[in-house]
C-alpha cells in the first residue's frame, strides 16, 4: 500500500477550482511523505478531464469509466472507487470536500472499515490533519490509525491550486464491474431554484445595501457589484420602506433571516433589527464611512470609506479575480 491518490470531480469535462486544490493538497502530502501522487476521475466520459490532469506533474492519471457512471449516484461511485482502491491500494486518498464527496465517501470508507477525515484545512507532519471544530471556534488535529487506506477531503480554499507544476502524466483506464441493479437511487437532472422568486434564505452570497446609498438612483452601483459576485441583492429596512427595492429583499427582524457564506453590507450602519437577520452569515464584510458603525463590530472584514468610491473599485477587483 503506497502512494497518494487524488479523486477529482468533473462536470461535463470541466474541473472545478476545489478539485485542483485537492490535487495541490495531494501533491503537498506526497512531497511531505515522499511518495508518488496520482489522480483519478470518475464518469462515463472522462477523456477531457483526464487530459487536463495529465498536463500536471502527476505520477499517473486514471480514468474510472463506465456507462453507469454517467450520472452521479452514491452506489455507483462507491462501488467503482471501492474496486479501484482495492486494486490500486493507495495509502492516502484525497478528495475535494464537495457535496458529492460528502454524499458517498463516508459510505466508501465504511466499506474499508475506515472513516473519512473530512473538511481538512491543513496537513502537518505526521501526517496530522487539521480541521475546524465547533464551527471554527477550535481546531482539531486528526491522525489516521486504521490499517486500510486513509481517506481525506479538503476544504475549498485551503490549498492553493495556482502553483501546480506542469508535467505529462500517463493516462490509464479502469473499468469497474457494475450492474444497474446495484444502483438503488434514481437521480433526476439538476435544476435551478426559480429565478423569479427571490429566495434570500438559501442564497450563498448576498450584497446588502443600506441608507448609505442615499438615493434609488445610486442602486445600480451595488447591483453591478452583486452581479460581478453572482450574489443576491438585499437591503435594510429603510431602503424597502422607501420602495427602492421590493419588501422581499429586506433583511432583518421584520424581513428575511439569511445565512449565506458571505454577507457584504454596503452603507449599512447595523441597527439591531438588521443584525438579527444576518448574524448567521459565515463571513461578514462591511463597507461604511463611519468607523464607529455597529456593523463593524460583527464584521470579519471592513473597509472604512465612501461607498461611492469603494464599491466600483471592489466590483473591478472581483471581476479581475474571477478572470
Amino acid at each position: 500500500m503506497s502512494g497518494v491518490l487524488v479523486v477529482i470531480e468533473q462536470r461535463d469535462g470541466a474541473i472545478g477550482r476545489i478539485s485542483w486544490e485537492a490535487v495541490a493538497a495531494g501533491k503537498f502530502l506526497g512531497t511531505k511523505i515522499g511518495v508518488d501522487v496520482g489522480a483519478a476521475v470518475i464518469g462515463a466520459a472522462t477523456e477531457s478531464a483526464a487530459a487536463q490532469l495529465s498536463a500536471k506533474a502527476l505520477a499517473k492519471v486514471v480514468r474510472i469509466e463506465h456507462a453507469l457512471l454517467a450520472q452521479y449516484t452514491s452506489d455507483g461511485y462507491s462501488l467503482a472507487l471501492e474496486q479501484f482502491i482495492a486494486q490500486d491500494k493507495p495509502e492516502y486518498v484525497i478528495f475535494p470536500h464537495t457535496y458529492q464527496v460528502r454524499d458517498f465517501v463516508p459510505a466508501l470508507a465504511t466499506r474499508f472499515g475506515e472513516m473519512l477525515i473530512s473538511d481538512v484545512i491543513a496537513i502537518a507532519d505526521g501526517p496530522v490533519f487539521a480541521r475546524q471544530l465547533l464551527q471554527g471556534r477550535l481546531q482539531g488535529s486528526y491522525r489516521h490509525t486504521g490499517t486500510g487506506p486513509c481517506l481525506v477531503s479538503v476544504q475549498a480554499g485551503a490549498f492553493r491550486a495556482d502553483a501546480l507544476e506542469a508535467g505529462s502524466a500517463q493516462v490509464s483506464r479502469f473499468t469497474p464491474a457494475l450492474d444497474a441493479a446495484q444502483i438503488r437511487t434514481r437521480p433526476e437532472p439538476p435544476f435551478r431554484g426559480s429565478e423569479q422568486t427571490i429566495d434570500l434564505g438559501s442564497a450563498q452570497l448576498i450584497v446588502s445595501v443600506g441608507r448609505g446609498i442615499k438615493d434609488a438612483e445610486n442602486l445600480p452601483l451595488v447591483q453591478e457589484l452583486a452581479k460581478a459576485l453572482g450574489a443576491e441583492l438585499a437591503a435594510s429596512r429603510p431602503i424597502c420602506d422607501n420602495g427602492w427595492l421590493p419588501m422581499e429583499r429586506q433583511v432583518g427582524s421584520s424581513g428575511q433571516t439569511v445565512s449565506p457564506r458571505l454577507y457584504l453590507a454596503v452603507g449599512i450602519s447595523g441597527a439591531i433589527q438588521h443584525l438579527v437577520g444576518m448574524k448567521g452569515a459565515q463571513c461578514i464584510a462591511a463597507i461604511n464611512k463611519d468607523p464607529d458603525a455597529p456593523i463593524f463590530e460583527v464584521a470579519d472584514y471592513g473597509i472604512v470609506g465612501d461607498l461611492f468610491e469603494v464599491v466600483p473599485a471592489l466590483t473591478e477587483a472581483v471581476k479581475a479575480a474571477k478572470g
Binding site: S253, I272, L275, V276, K279, V298
Partner: peptide, 8 residues
Amino acid sequence: ALGLGAAE
C-alpha cells in the same frame, strides 16, 4: 430574544 450569541 434577538437570537444573538452570548459572546456578543
